[in-house]
Structure formats: C-alpha cells, structure tokens
Write a protein that binds this DNA or RNA. Structure first.
Lengths: 155, 155
DNA sequence: TTCTCAAGTCAACATAGTTGACATGAAAGG
DNA sequence: CCTTTCATGTCAACTATGTTGACTTGAGAA
C-alpha cells in the first residue's frame, strides 16, 4: 500500500503550453488526482487502496456478481484480482457464497462493514464532484458529463 | 512495461447507480482511461510507458529543468525518477548537460527524437480531447475546464 | 464416468513506487 | 587551503499492482 499521505505531491505546476489543448491534458491529470486524493487517504487508513475500492464499488452495485464477471468488469486478470479480493474476504468486507442453487460460481456480496467502507470512500469522491458541479451549475455539470462520455466512448 | 495492448479491458459496464453522482465517478475513471489508452499503446510500442511520458512532457515544457525541480514537479522520489530518466537518457531522448556556467545541477532537455516521441504521445491525448470538445462546442469545453479546475484545486 | 469449466493457487516476472544509507563532486565560506 | 553544503547518483531492501503460464480442485453435464 502507498504511504498514508504522499503529502504535497504536485500542485499544478505551471508549465509552458506548447499546444492549445495542453491545459486540458493537465486538467485531466490533476482532476483525476483531485477526485481520488481524499478517498485514497481514507482507504490507506483502512489498510486498503484503489484496487480494493474498485472491487468494493463494483460489488456494491452488482450484488451476487460472480468472480468471472468481476474480472471482466474490472478488466484485470484472475491472479491480479486474487490478492486484493482475498484480503477483502479475510477482513469480512466481502462475503462469498458458493451456490444459491448449487452453482459452480461463487457469488460475492458486501458485508455491512464492506458497505460502510465502500460508501465512505465513494463519498469522498462524490463530495469533490458535488462541490465542483456546484460551482458551475446544472448546465455546466451536464456539459462536463457530455465531454467525459465522448472521451470514454472514443475507443 | 505493460503489454502492448491489454485488449478490451472495460467498456463502461453498466452498474446500478446507488447515488446520483455515481455516474460522474465512473465517467472520471473511464474518461481518464479513454484519454490515455491510445497514447499508452503508442508508448508501449516504443518500449516506454506513462512515467516516461510524464518526464518527457514536463521536460518539453521546461527546457533546462534541473533534476531536483523535475522531482518536485512530478511529485516522486529521486530514486523513482532514476530508472525511467536514465532509460530516456540512454536512448538519447533526453540530454543532460552539467553546467552552462559550471553549475552543480544538471540541465535536462529533449533531443529531437525525444521531442518527436513526446509530441506523438501527447498528440494521441490531444486528439481525444479535441474530438470530445468538438462535440460539445466552445461553451461546453469551457464548462468542462471549469469543472476540472474546481476539482484539481479542491485539495 | 469422463469431460468441461469456474475458481483457486503457485511460480516467475515487470513496473512503479517507497525509505534508508552512502558516495561523489562542485560551490561557497572560514 | 580546507571544510562544509548541497545536488546528484547509486545501492539495497521493501511494497504493491499488475502480467503469463501451468497446474489443481470441485461441481455440473454429457
């Protein structure tokens, strides 16, 4: 796990702009970091990190998801999922039941403790977004989402 | 270095939304990936990856930057900078001169080859942004930047 | 009973970052 | 001149996150 706080890190060093879209590239970088910074600090306090949060986030929104589907959704390998997921299960943040009707796949769910941590971590991120959207109004927020959708769907 | 292509990965799995801002969190994640995907593939072809690009990007915009200032700007440790930077120097993508007037610090610059690679990698990212901005017009682009600035400055 | 297939596990590796400790070499000061 | 300072460089050990490849296990289905 990363240190609890990597302190200052970068505060948007002002670099010369060689192209008119350079500011946008830098904003994407600093925006991503800005949204995740507090959540990562909270997670580090819990001995968890971003991959754990990703798992918790997905399982929260797809109760009874099977491991294979989780691997698909996260886009990582079975082996890469293994360690963080096992940690979550050991800590009883995620429960894994084999079979509701004697199935081969395991079904994952968040425990109450897992839900609490998922919610708190995601709350930090939502708080950042809520404040940012608050400064630009509904139409600005809609425009932001439209841009991000265009980017996300560009591949 | 990561594989040349991690293939599909995630294509915005539709997860249930537990909160009204969940869509925004997911868009930030997929947006970041969408912007960097092609650039990362290009970099991987060159045997480079994201940290190398970050170094090239900063050095391109601050010619004659000293190593200490680069460390500051990137927010990583001297030791973490060491390997990727030395690779760039070995490959003659970055040049390092000690002293214009007998100084203690080394001054970094991109070579012509380094400039070419930095530009191509950043072009992939700018292309994604340009297309996304094109779909929402000037006011949408301005709103996107305002939101991202608010997020970036939220810490 | 064998085949299939999801899941689990083990080893080896690459990458990206961290601390800590120490070496080197030039600048600056007594 | 000699010593201190300071940027840089380097070594070792560690953590974490990811990869492939090869294999086992255990249950369902043919």
């Amino acid at each position: 796990m990363p240190k609890t706080s990597q302190a200052a890190g970068l505060h948007r060093a002002s670099l010369d702009k060689l192209h008119d879209l350079d500011a946008a590239l830098e904003l994407m970088y600093y925006g991503w970091r800005g949204m995740t910074l507090e959540a990562d600090e909270y997670l580090a306090q819990q001995g968890l990190s971003r991959p754990h949060h990703r798992i918790l986030y997905v399982v929260a929104r797809r109760p009874d998801i099977a491991i294979g589907a989780l691997i698909e959704t996260l886009g990582i390998s079975k082996q890469a999922l293994n360690r963080p997921l096992n940690l979550l299960i050991e800590r009883k943040l995620v429960s894994s039941k084999r079979s509701p009707e004697q199935h081969r796949s395991k079904l994952l769910r968040l425990t109450a403790a897992g839900q609490r941590i998922e919610q708190k971590a995601s709350d930090h991120e939502r708080k950042v977004m809520r404040e940012a959207f608050g400064r630009v109004g509904t139409s600005g927020a809609a425009a932001w989402m439209a841009v991000m959708e265009a980017i996300a769907d560009s591949n």
